[in-house]
Simulated assay, not measured.
Amino acid sequence: MVSFVPILAWVLALVAAAADIARAPRPLGARLVADRLLRWIFFFVIGLMSLWAFMGHVFFPAEAAAAIGWQTSPFQFEVGVANLGIGLAGVVGAFWGRLGFRTATWIVVASFLGGAAIGHLRQIAETGNLAAGNAGPILYTDILTPTVVAVLLLVAWKADQKA
Rank of each mutant, 00 (worst) to 15 (best):
I21D: 00
G119P: 01
F59H: 07
I143W: 10
F112N: 03
V91G: 02
R23M: 12
F42W: 15
I143G: 06
A65D: 06
A110Y: 10
G128M: 00
L14H: 08
S73D: 15
I46A: 06
A24S: 11
G115R: 01
G93P: 02
M1E: 15
M49C: 10
G56M: 02
A131E: 06
G115Q: 09
W40H: 02
P6E: 00
A9P: 10
V81H: 15
L152T: 05
A34D: 04
K158I: 11
F54W: 04
W40R: 06
A135Q: 00
I21A: 02
L121K: 09
G80F: 04
M49R: 11
D160M: 08
G56R: 00
L14P: 09
V11C: 12
A125F: 12
V79S: 14
F54E: 01
P74Y: 01
L99K: 07
L8E: 07
W157P: 07
W106R: 03
W10P: 05
A135N: 08
L28E: 12
E126N: 10
A16V: 02
G47M: 05
R39W: 05
E126Y: 08
F77G: 15
V92K: 13
V148L: 14
N134V: 12
W70Y: 11
V151Y: 00
L88I: 12
G69E: 01
N83W: 06
W96N: 12
L37F: 03
